[in-house]
Structure formats: structure tokens, C-alpha cells
Write a protein that binds this DNA or RNA. Structure first.
Lengths: 222, 222, 222, 222
DNA sequence: AATGAATGAGTATTCATTCAT
DNA sequence: TATGAATGAATACTCATTCAT
């Protein structure tokens, strides 16, 4: 079968036979994401998921080991995508030199992060409102994600200090603080759905501005 | 208990039959706090709580409507204490005039907040890792608490802008950001137990400094 | 309570308060025995047992860890009783001297064994038709029981050989053979309910006679 | 198999597309025997059997009505072979005249039985540890097999009594006893794998000797 | 004949809550 | 008040069987 397929130049399978266009596993994962986002882990029954996916109970267990398994795959998939995007975005950030460039880059980076989180809305809800205790592996993964983000921010800060354009601050604390801000604002915006009166770009600019200059009015320059 | 009873010459309590002065409700609430903090809401069984309190299963229902009820009272009690402390602390903050006084006040306020949160550690865990979906009333309460804190911060910022010592910033966003920072750092410190390398005072100073001046090195003053 | 009870000379509890005459655990065990005997382990549902006992599903789990647990207790209880009875019966057997006494003792012992097994009918069915694979602990216990019985028989045979009234035979094999006979006849009689046309005493006599003299007609004594 | 195909000059099978001469049904039955012997009926999943046979789940149902069906065919096949062998063996037994010939014949017969059971080891396990309750038809068949064996033994005994070389014994009981011995020893040897310290011939001789003379030392012949 | 994805009935077990004592 | 035995609704998961391809 696969041989004949390999050498045939035409008639490339109409519908791939085995899977006539549908991927039950993906369907179930999508259904699960939606239901989990609506009801949370504990209130979600496997029967809810299969009902949403339009398949029988048993089908679920062909693709997942159990309720915890779907949840784990959901979270881990999202975490991976977040880290991927993060790496891509920060790769760009490294190549700047001037302060204004840095600012613009910060803004662009933050906008990128926000856009990505926006696209992960439903899983984000589950990640940020991490109940804990569902699966130690999930807790570890989320803690790991947070640590990576914080550490990346810390290194950025340290690089700025070394480069001389950031003041001597406690990078550990400030990195945590910055990540805290972003987590919180993302939660408000994407999970609770509050738009905070501005679009994503303006939001990012305001955050970056705050991060860079603080809240005090600058002393009048003569 | 039995000792004091044996040797007491007078009838100390009207009803010293079963409860010689102890408040079963408070005992149960304390036991519940401890167990919830350890295992989270869903993993905690009513049987765990009564076992920790040393009473019978049925006794629990003499003091609480159910598992959700204890949890609610736990959270709401803590929220009330937080708001109380917050009000007391901010009352003081209003009476300052100079910028340096304001800074010191901010630090003192934040230290006060941290100390209080420290004393609420066990419940804080439950509040910050808001599971959601347990009880709409709890969600509303926690959302309300957050809103109050944000609104207070927003008003403070607005007052600073009006008074002329804060720059024109989006108070809505920055208030959220500030609360996010504090939430996150509190979570790291009190729930996850990371000391971040500094004591509470230093932590507060670093935060306030960041909040006020941002991360950029100030331009050299001539 | 226990104090007042200890010292009160009269009014010894009408119905012992806590347990007004009923022992749910025992009731459930009895119900389980009956249902298991009828349907076997795998065909017996916990719901059958609780229905037979007239209690709710949950009640079952107050007294047993699960379906396997009741079964184990059933079997192990019966095994213990069998061994107890066996020990008592064989204690008597040791004290004989003449061959005829030995014969009578053998018969009496066998009758005792049969009577006991008769009283354990329902569990016997489960023991003899040991499905295996339900619980390794049960398999081990039943294997152990069989080994004890065989070993006891083997020692009896050896004693007879040493004493000179038994011929030199392979005690290991014959002990197994004897236990096999008894197992099989017990199964036929008590599990399958065939009376084999004789009462228990006659059955025992026939067995003992066979065991002692075999099937051959003795050579005519001149 | 594949060898014969490779070198065959003619088209041996009409449909050598998928099944080049193999009997899927037999393959499945063999696989089932192996798995059932290892795990027992209830612990064996159809998926285990098809995995062992290397075919798809659905293929199983082309050859068997269901899980119970394979089991039944397994047992019934074995029972038939046992009865066949039994008949052949006993046919020979009928033609003897002297007592010593009879003894030798008994031994030879028993050895034959043991050898056959040895070759049926895996199914024997399932037959002897008759779970009961799987399928009434199986229970009936096994009961029938046992009855046939017992009845045959009973007739042998009766013939011996009639011929005058066996003493007057209760043929019903002794036949059961003898079958019980053989069942039990076969179980120990072939199912539990204990060799009892002797080879099959010696085992048979010991059994026959016991059966004929019992355990008592014969009175000294003058 | 062969496949294997899909099915869904069947069941053990948990645990919040009640209530007679 | 306090007890704790009893309740039973609720649910995850298994696996024999089917059937479209």
C-alpha cells in the first residue's frame, strides 16, 4: 500500500483513507480546551468533553490516558508554544544598541507576547489560575515556565546594567516584579476580558514607559 | 481539660458538659485553614478537617453549611482583615507632604502590607491561587478585593498627578501593574517561600524605588 | 460512659447503644458469602452484596476496602477455622497405639473434617474452585492451607512407617494422593451436593478402608 | 511454510493474497491458549489474544463468536482429546487376565494418562481450576468429563469385583476417590510444576501400588 | 478476509451530607 | 451539642463487540 503510494505520481489519496480528514485526537483536545476554559478542571467531566467533541466516552480513552492526561497535554502544548515564541521574540531584542531602539524593541516584544497570549486565551486561563494539586508534573512545568521567563528578564536587566544604561537595581526582585506585572495585566485582559481602555500597543507602551521611568515626574530639565 | 475539671471547686461553666469554654467553630475553622493550605480545596475532605479538629463528622455541620461554607468564611475573613489593614495603613499615607516623606511612607505601607500577608500565609495561598469555580461568591469577593486594591492605588496615583509630583500616566493600567507586582512578589515570598535574597524592608524599598524611578539610569545632573 | 458502665452494678445496657444488636460488618460478610457462593467472584457485583444485606452502596465501604477485601476475609476466615479444627482433631489422633484404634481414629478424624467442611459449604465452594488471579494473597493462603494439610498427612504416614505398621511408601506422593481424594470427595459432596449414596460416617469408613487396604481382595489366609 | 510456498511449482492456494496457507483460526486458538494459561479467563483481554496472534482486533470475530467462544473451543477440544486417549488406553486394559498383568496395565494406563495431561498442560490448568460461571456449557462439559472418567473407573472396579480379584468395595465412592487422586496429582505436577521427586513411571507405580494395597504393611505371610 | 477506530453499557468507589441517638 | 453510622448520587474508566473501509 505505502509502496504503491510512494511511486504513484498521480491520484495522491483523495482523503488519506484511514483518517478521512479528521483527527479525533485533535478534535478531542480542542473540545477539552474549550470545556476546561469554561468550567475549570474539577468541574469538567469527561462526559462534557466527549459531548463537546461529539464522540463516545470510550473514544476519549483511545487518545488520552485520562482526564489528567488531556489537561497535561493542553498545558504543556501551550507552554511550549509560549517558550518558542518567547525565544523568537527575544532573539530579535538582543541586537539593539541605542536606548530608543531598546524602548521600541521592548514595546514590540511586549506586543508580541500579548498577541501570543491573546491567541492562547483559553489555555492561559488555566495556566494563570493554576489550581495546583492536579498533577505535580503540571505544577513543575508551570513553575519552570515562570522561572524561565523571570530568568530571561533578569538577564536582560543585567545586560542593561552592564551596558551602562540601566541603574544598579536588584535584578532578581525587579525581574519578578516585571513578570508579575505582565502576568497580572494578561490575566485581566485575556482571562477576565477587561480591555483597560486601550489597545494592545498602547498598553505595551504604557508598561514599558512605567518600567523605564517609573511614576515620578522627571525633574524639570533647564 | 479533664484535670481542671477534676480539681475545680466551683462550677466554672454553665454547660461544662461537653465544651468547657472552647469554641468548636473556631477550632474547626483553624483546622480547615491548615488542611486547605496543605492540600487545596478539592483534595481536602471534610473528614480531613474533622480529623484535624478532633471532632466527629456531624459536628462540622453544626457550624458550617458545608465544605464550601468553611472555605468561603476562611477567604472572606482573610479578605476583611486585609482590607482593614489596608485602610488603616493608607489613612496614615494621606497625611504626608514632601516627596521623600511620600517615599518613606510608600515603603512603610508596603512593609505593612507584606507583614500582614505574611501573617495570612496559609490563606494567602488559597487566595492567590484562586481556583475559581468553587463558589461564585468567592470569585466575586476576590475580584472585589483586587478591584478595591487597584482602585485605591489608582486614586493614589491620581492624587499624585493632581498634586503635580507624578507624571501624567494611565492610572488604570499602572494601578493594575503595581498590584500585579505586589501580588506576584507576595506569592513568591509567602506562598512559594522564596526569600529573594533580601528582607522585607529591603524588598519594599526596591519595589518602591522601581515604581518611582523605573529601571533607567537617571541622566547625569549637571 | 465506659466509667459509669464499669461501676454500675445494674442496668447493664439494654442494647449496647452504639450497636443496637446488629453488626453491619458481619451482616455484609454473610450476605457476601451467600452471593459469592451463588454467582462466584467475578459475577458478583458489590451492588448484589449490598442488596442482599439491605444496605446502601456506601455502607459496604465502611467495612471493607473493596470487593477483593470481602472475598479475602471470607476465604481467610474459613481457612483459619479449617486449620483450627484440623489441629484439634489431629491432637487426639496422636495418642493412639493399636491398629484398630488408629483405624477408628482415622474414621473419626475424617468424619470430623467432613462435618466441618459441611458447615463451611458455601465458602468451600469458593476455596475448591479457586479461580486464582483474584488476589495473590488468597492464592498464597490456599496453597499454604493445602501444603499444611499435605504435610500433616505426610508426617502421619511417616510416623506409621516408623512405628512399623505402615509399609515403606513414598510419603510425599501418598500424602498428596490422600488429600486429593478428600478434596475431591468433599467437592462432590458439599459443593456439588451429591451424597454418593451413603452417610458421612460410611463415607469416611470406606475411604479409610481403601486408604488402608487398597482395592485388592486380600489373599485367602490359610 | 513460507519455504514450501517458495519452492512450490504450482499454485497451491487460490487466495494466497493475505493468508499464505496459514490457518488464522488455529493461530488465534493457539495464542488464546497461551494467554489464558498465563492469565486466566477473566484477566485475559481479547486484545491480549489478538496481540499474541499478531492480528487485528476485528479478525478475532471472524473466527470466534466472542471471548467465551474461544474458551469453550479450547476446553472442549482438550476434553475430546482426553476422552479419545482414555478410550484408546482403556481398550487395551480390557484384554488382561492375570493380576500382575492388570497391575502392569494399570501403571501403563496411568503413565499414558499422565503423558497426555502433560501435553495438555496449559489447558489442563484451565480445566482443573474450573472457575465456573463463565459458561454453563463449559461447566456441563467438565462435569461430564469427570463423570465419564469416574464411571469408567467404576466399571473397571466392578469388573474386578465380579472377576473376583477385587474385594467388595463401594465402587461409586472409590471411583471418585481414585479420580480425585489423579486429578490432584496431575494438578500438582502439571499445573503447579512440582515433580514430587519422581519420574512419571515411578509416580504411576506408587499410585497403583497404593490403590491396590493401601498403606498398611501386609501381614507376614508364613 | 482483514482491519482497527469507534462504541457505550457496565461498575467499583468516593465523599459530602443527614439524622437518629 | 455532639456523635458517627448510613446514605446514595455522581463519575472515571474498561473492554467486548461492531462495522465501514
Amino acid at each position: 500500500m505505502s509502496v504503491s503510494k510512494r511511486f504513484s505520481l498521480v491520484d495522491q489519496e483523495k482523503s488519506d483513507q484511514e483518517t478521512p480528514g479528521v483527527d479525533r485526537g485533535a478534535e478531542l483536545l480542542a473540545a477539552a480546551t474549550s470545556v476546561f476554559a469554561q468550567k475549570g478542571f474539577h468541574e469538567t467531566k469527561v462526559s462534557d468533553i466527549v459531548a463537546a467533541a461529539g464522540v463516545a466516552q470510550g473514544t476519549f480513552y483511545l487518545y488520552f490516558k485520562g482526564k489528567g492526561d488531556v489537561f497535561f497535554r493542553l498545558i504543556s502544548g501551550c507552554c511550549e508554544r509560549i517558550l518558542d515564541q518567547m525565544h523568537q521574540a527575544s532573539a530579535i531584542q538582543q541586537q539593539v544598541t541605542t536606548a530608543e531602539e531598546a524602548r521600541q524593541n521592548n514595546v514590540a516584544f511586549l506586543v508580541g507576547v500579548f498577541r501570543m497570549l491573546e491567541s492562547e486565551q483559553s489555555v492561559l486561563k488555566l495556566i494563570l489560575a493554576d489550581p495546583g494539586g492536579i498533577d505535580p508534573a503540571i505544577d513543575k512545568m508551570l513553575a519552570g515556565l515562570r522561572e524561565i521567563l523571570v530568568e530571561q528578564e533578569r538577564q536582560n536587566l543585567q545586560a542593561g546594567i552592564d551596558a551602562g544604561y540601566l541603574r544598579a537595581l536588584n535584578t532578581t526582585i525587579i525581574a519578578e516584579a516585571v513578570v508579575g506585572m505582565v502576568y497580572h495585566l494578561s490575566f485581566e485582559r485575556f482571562v477576565r476580558g477587561r480591555d483597560l481602555g486601550v489597545d494592545l500597543e498602547k498598553l505595551a507602551e504604557e508598561i514599558v514607559s512605567f518600567e523605564r521611568h517609573g511614576i515620578l515626574k522627571p525633574p524639570p530639565v533647564k
